[in-house]
Each structure stands twice: as C-alpha cells, then as structure tokens.
Simulated scan of single mutants.
Amino acid sequence: MIGCGDSIVATTTGLVIYTDRVEAAISSLLDNKNTHYGQSGLVNSLADSDLSYVSSSVASGTVTIELSGQLRSGGICDNPRIIAQLEYTAMTAAAVAKAKILINGKEIAFQLSGN
C-alpha cells in the first residue's frame, strides 16, 4: 500500500531489447505518457513529467537512479505514487531491496516538497 489507499501494481511492456536492464525499465516507465493504463483503472502518475534517464549504479543492496528534467505532480496523492512507481521499477530491474531516486542531483522527496 502507498499513499491515499493506493497499491503499486506491476505491469508488463512489449518486447524490449536492452544492454542495461535498469535503464530499459526506467526509460520505458518515463516514456509512457498515457495517464491511464488501458482499461485497468491503473494510473501513471509520471505521465505529465518530462524526465529522462541519466544513469544508475548499485552498491550495498541499493540502486541509485539519476534522472534529469521536470517532475510534475498532480498533488498530495500523486507524490507517493510517483515515488513508488520509480522506486519499485528500479528495485525490480536491479534485483535489490532499496532504491534512491535523484532528479537533477536532488533526492525525489526534496523535489516533491516544492523546495
């Protein structure tokens, strides 16, 4: 469960050829500009953002993802959705238990706080 009574739900994409599994997963998530995932009722809270994958690294069981661009949130309920979508995608792709997301060099929670 994440904020506002929501749950994070895994989805699949079409065939993706990649050399970096984390880059492929995060880029696929960021490239999807549809607010809704088909008729499922699932919401893509990142649809209005203009973010690009820069790099990733894994150390001590944590994947760190660096993104650049503009993060846009629909408000208080979207903030935890955005964090969960990015973190769980990164953790799954990197096969680790923790994720740290940086946007333009700053942690995502800081970006979403409006500072």
Score class of each variant (00 low, 15 high):
residue 77 C to G: 07
residue 108 I to A: 07
residue 5 G to F: 11
residue 25 A to L: 06
residue 87 E to H: 12
residue 69 G to M: 12
residue 54 V to M: 07
residue 51 L to P: 04
residue 36 H to W: 09
residue 32 N to C: 05
residue 87 E to L: 04
residue 13 T to V: 07
residue 15 L to Q: 08
residue 20 D to K: 15
residue 91 M to G: 01
residue 76 I to M: 12
residue 107 E to G: 14
residue 60 S to N: 15
residue 86 L to W: 00
residue 52 S to M: 10
residue 23 E to S: 07
residue 34 N to Y: 07
residue 18 Y to L: 06
residue 97 A to R: 11
residue 83 I to V: 15
residue 93 A to R: 01
residue 16 V to R: 06
residue 93 A to N: 09
residue 70 Q to M: 14
residue 26 I to W: 00
residue 15 L to E: 09
residue 69 G to Q: 04
residue 86 L to P: 00
residue 9 V to A: 06
residue 54 V to C: 04
residue 63 V to S: 01
residue 43 V to M: 00
residue 57 S to M: 10
residue 62 T to R: 12
residue 46 L to I: 07
residue 89 T to P: 00
residue 47 A to T: 01
residue 28 S to Q: 06
residue 51 L to Q: 03
residue 93 A to W: 05
residue 24 A to S: 10
residue 52 S to N: 15
residue 64 T to Y: 11
residue 6 D to H: 10
residue 97 A to K: 08
residue 89 T to I: 04
residue 84 A to L: 08
residue 15 L to V: 14
residue 78 D to T: 11
residue 18 Y to A: 08
residue 71 L to M: 15
residue 20 D to P: 13
residue 89 T to K: 00
residue 87 E to P: 07
residue 17 I to C: 00
residue 44 N to L: 02
residue 17 I to W: 02
residue 108 I to V: 14
residue 48 D to H: 07
residue 70 Q to H: 08
residue 89 T to S: 01
residue 108 I to P: 04
residue 54 V to S: 04
residue 26 I to S: 01
residue 101 I to N: 00
residue 21 R to L: 05
residue 90 A to S: 11
residue 61 G to I: 13
residue 47 A to G: 00
residue 60 S to G: 10
residue 91 M to S: 03
residue 66 E to G: 09
residue 88 Y to S: 06
residue 99 A to V: 06
residue 85 Q to I: 01
residue 33 K to F: 05
residue 11 T to G: 05
residue 26 I to G: 00
residue 34 N to F: 03
residue 88 Y to W: 11
residue 51 L to W: 06
residue 24 A to L: 10
residue 50 D to K: 11
residue 16 V to Y: 03
residue 78 D to F: 08
residue 38 G to V: 08
residue 90 A to V: 14
residue 74 G to E: 07
residue 14 G to L: 01
residue 29 L to W: 02
residue 10 A to M: 12
residue 70 Q to K: 14
residue 41 G to V: 11
residue 78 D to E: 14
residue 93 A to D: 03
residue 79 N to F: 13
residue 57 S to T: 12
residue 75 G to C: 09
residue 24 A to E: 04
residue 16 V to G: 00
residue 41 G to K: 04
residue 47 A to H: 06
residue 12 T to F: 15
residue 29 L to C: 00
residue 16 V to M: 05
residue 8 I to L: 08
residue 72 R to F: 10
residue 55 S to H: 09
residue 104 N to G: 13
residue 71 L to E: 05
residue 98 K to L: 11
residue 20 D to I: 13
residue 58 V to E: 03
residue 49 S to R: 04
residue 24 A to T: 09
residue 81 R to D: 07
residue 33 K to Q: 03
residue 44 N to S: 03
residue 5 G to I: 15
residue 76 I to K: 14
residue 95 A to P: 03
residue 17 I to N: 03
residue 39 Q to D: 14
residue 86 L to T: 00
residue 61 G to R: 12
residue 84 A to E: 07
residue 47 A to F: 06
residue 19 T to S: 14
residue 24 A to N: 05
residue 66 E to R: 09
residue 46 L to G: 01
residue 109 A to L: 11
residue 106 K to C: 10
residue 45 S to W: 03
residue 105 G to L: 10
residue 31 D to F: 13
residue 92 T to G: 08
residue 90 A to K: 03
residue 78 D to M: 02
residue 34 N to V: 02
residue 16 V to L: 09
